[in-house]
Design a protein around this nucleic acid. Structure first.
Lengths: 140, 140
DNA sequence: GACAGATCTTGAATGATTCAAGAAGATGCG
DNA sequence: CGCATCTTCTTGAATCATTCAAGATCTGTC
């Protein structure tokens, strides 16, 4: 995969790419943890650099919902979206739902040339909704 | 407006609310600047507190696209969306475009109870697109 | 196998945002 | 109108994800 996008193959890159595949929607810290479990010591700077390189190359996608740290996922190229639980922060994928040529109509709003439509659904995950219904009120 | 949502009326709150109305999509720093031009010295902490109170009360909306600082707008309650220029970062409003009961179908993805759909369109604003066509290539 | 440039390590800096404690202000009541 | 009380603002410092910078190391190529 790395060679396919003209990136040099290094141990940190392979490990980061593996971690992003294994841990969907993981934040940088989790990825650093997984990489170190795999390789031993790796600097956090290296992981940041690698994540940027992979993102630029299009091998991973970076998402950063309001008020959270950056997260990464390996599912790219299909323009899917995300649901985020306001209570526990868990993220799930949502396939593009609206009609057929959805989300990214190559339309031209306000004269902008649009190349991506990013949709984030906010709500309650099943677990948190149940907990709240039960009265435990573990808000946030 | 403040009394309407049971918030005490203070000079900083009035000034911040005015600034958010005057400067759509302004970041915190811009708002602090506008407030100080209006009132003289006001602590940044006060502005942060006020913005949070106003956001919680629903008088302003906070947006924070990937990789940017928080921004605020006074247009609330109509579920509109945003287009952002990847080159210069300018933000414009986009009315809900998709069909009739758009964006927020009270549907139930993966068992989530969704209460908001946030859409961000990424692209090039007319100015940056023109500049790029002209070959000036002022990327970023 | 060695060179050149990319990538990693180390260590420090940045900057938006938040925390904490005390002073000042707003609202309600006498 | 003046006071008591709770909220809000000021001041000053801390947090923490992310980035910068300089030098050492490694990858891919000739």
């Amino acid at each position: 995969m790395l060679r396919g996008v003209d990136l040099r193959v290094t141990r940190p890159r392979v490990a980061v790419l593996g971690a992003v595949h294994d841990l969907p929607h993981a934040d940088t810290e989790s990825i650093i943890g997984a990489v170190r479990r795999d390789l031993g010591d790796v600097s956090h700077q290296a992981v940041y650099d690698v994540l940027r390189a992979l993102t630029t190359a299009g091998l991973v996608r970076r998402i950063q919902p309001s008020g959270t740290v950056a997260r990464y996922e390996a599912r790219v190229g299909d323009n899917h979206h995300h649901v985020i639980c306001r209570s526990c922060g868990v993220i799930a994928d949502v396939d593009c739902a609206v009609g057929e040529a959805p989300c990214l109509t190559a339309s031209d709003h306000n004269g902008f040339a649009i190349d991506e439509a990013e949709v984030i659904y906010w709500g309650q995950c099943p677990t948190c909704a149940a907990r709240r219904d039960a009265g435990t009120e573990t808000v946030h």
